[in-house]
Design a protein around this nucleic acid. Structure first.
Lengths: 350, 350
DNA sequence: TTGAAAGCGCTAACAA
DNA sequence: TTGTTAGCGCTTTCAA
């Protein structure tokens, strides 16, 4: 159904052989400039686009990348997709997607059958699949190049990218401390996600640096869901010693905290400061809007793709950056602490 | 890189010709049952998967469908994607995606170059692209089969699917009336989206049916954004005669209304009922959670794909349903009207 | 009902 | 530096 112009048409218009056209198309050496120009002119005149299927068939390539994800955060996924697509298009690759459920019994079976059924040149894994050993082994055994976004364990002979979650969580905690908070609670994310640990680490690091003892009563286990945010908030806010700030490791949970605060008539931010993570739409659409951390999701997708393509082409990818920085997004849910400080800080606060 | 077993291996194992294998694979007639079984057994034994590229090259098919979208609602898009993927996989099609910006100058240019550059058997259009005349003409001129989700104008010789937006808006308005509200404001969506008009129609239809005059002061132009929801809410809630209920034609805008209500110290739902549309995550994660309308997005994607595939295969698609029903999702943002009714209803309210 | 041969559009190997 | 030929894995003639 598509353009019927083939490489042969171009060849005859440019008065060269098909192989020469092919050479020009693929930037192969050993073609005189004059030839190149003649071919390029013909390509342009005919609006010729090489047929990827034929190309792929011959070269045992498909120019298709596969994104496998199991993630309930649509904002994140769509943004990653966009990054992958943009880089892919730049290099002539298309994207195929496989949403799946990482808690499913037959996850591996499903991924296997997908990988066998439709050819692709490489695979991109997002959290929490980036750390799924079975999937990684599957890819290794099938010799399919892959790249991982935000894996916990980055040791591998495959590329990965990630954002500096620990630093971002550190920065956020430091920001809360700078607002005068010392009783800062933390709601952890799902234990299956590697960022959960990194964010917790950043939180503890900041407290530590300012001489605040991490109070275990202030650290609760969430699961990245709204409900788990509510649940943890209820626990935190019914303790005898209540935190003056709650840092939830994603926005969903922060929104849950906000809901509970309202139900308990705790005004935000006057009586309680809330911070989230991810800068998803909900963080902007609740009131007060939630102070949060913005990951460079688009760039992560793009960079992961660039590395993957380099890996596929046996080019170097080690020189490309691996860790990108996050930004704090300051909104209304965080304000200076109004409570009388219960603790003396070891260091002056910025 | 993929499985190296070819149709030839299957043929020699089953002791038949390649053509016979091909026939069995494609369910062609004129193959004896015994043969079919022999071939199928060999296929299974070798775990043979036909190479789609070779298949496509020969048959001038790609088994790839393209979803083109320009939509800021990630929940919607991801859900549609899932529906398309599931149906596609059932019928052996893969999905390719092209996010774009429908307000961009060079939208058509971009879409054109994409369609020319990568082969696909069919295209799926979501709002607001479903009504983009230029894109439709482009597809027609290139003879690319397409299907549209929720187009305003469904007249075409191409398939479409949609949800009964008018009825859903009617149902929601009726629900608000049944709670005793008569001063019900409506925030319209983006004028480029066809559902905007249908939702308005449903709203007016319900008012009309219950003898409530549609007060033009109560109908505001929004743009499906949070900010436009805020803006309209501010207008509505600063008028001398204030509505007791606001029906925003999507959740984003409803969240904007909720924010303004809180800022103005109007408690929801006690003093103001709010309803949204779309059942996106934000409607669940604000407090109070927003009463809204749930479209069968996944099913729309699936059905649209089924129809498209039938169209591609020159099968009948007219017999498949086109319009699916929506559901009301009742949450805490709507409650019985506490204001003294300012109007007398023409009919008894349910 | 089955099979042999040709060829989809491109690139790798070889030849000129 | 350029061109010729074969063939990737499959399906479509056409013949048996």
């Amino acid at each position: 159904m598509n353009s019927k112009i083939t490489i042969r048409d171009v060849a005859s218009l440019a008065n060269v052989s098909v192989k020469t056209v092919s050479r020009v198309l693929n930037n192969e050496p050993n073609v005189r400039i004059a030839m190149q120009e003649r071919v390029n002119a013909a390509v342009k005149e005919l609006n010729f686009k090489p047929n990827p299927q034929a190309r792929g068939l011959r070269g045992n390539k498909s120019f298709i990348l596969t994104l496998i994800y199991s993630n309930p955060n649509p904002d994140y996924i769509l943004e990653v997709q966009k990054g992958i697509l943009d880089q892919g298009h730049e290099d002539g690759y298309n994207l195929q997607i496989l949403p799946c459920d990482h808690t499913s019994e037959n996850l591996i079976e499903m991924v296997t059958s997908f990988l066998e059924g439709s050819p692709q040149d490489g695979v991109i894994l997002t959290l929490p699949l980036s750390d799924n050993q079975q999937i990684i082994e599957l890819l290794e055994s099938k010799n399919i190049p892959y790249t991982r976004i935000s894996p916990l364990n980055s040791e591998s002979n495959s590329p990965f990218v990630g954002s500096d979650d620990q630093k971002a969580a550190y920065d956020m905690t430091r920001h809360l401390i700078s607002l005068g908070h010392t009783d800062i609670a933390f709601i952890k994310g799902h234990p299956d996600h590697s960022d959960t640990h990194k964010r917790l680490l950043g939180y503890k690091q900041a407290l530590n640096e300012y001489g605040i003892n991490a109070n275990e009563q202030f650290i609760k286990q969430g699961y990245f869901t709204f409900e788990s945010g509510e649940y943890c908030a209820r626990q935190l806010l019914s303790q005898p010693i209540k935190p003056t700030a709650i840092f939830a490791s994603n926005d969903c949970m922060a929104a849950g905290v906000l809901k509970v605060s309202k139900q308990l008539n705790i005004s935000v931010p006057a009586m309680l400061t809330i911070a989230g993570y991810d800068d998803t739409s909900v963080s902007q659409q609740v009131w007060p809007a939630i102070t949060t951390v913005k990951q460079p999701i688009y760039q992560l997708g793009k960079l992961a793709t660039k590395k993957l393509i380099n890996k596929i082409k046996s080019l170097d990818y080690e020189k490309l950056p691996s860790i990108l920085e996050c930004d704090l997004v300051l909104r209304e849910s965080a304000s200076p602490c109004s409570a009388i400080p219960r603790r003396i800080l070891a260091h002056e606060v910025i």
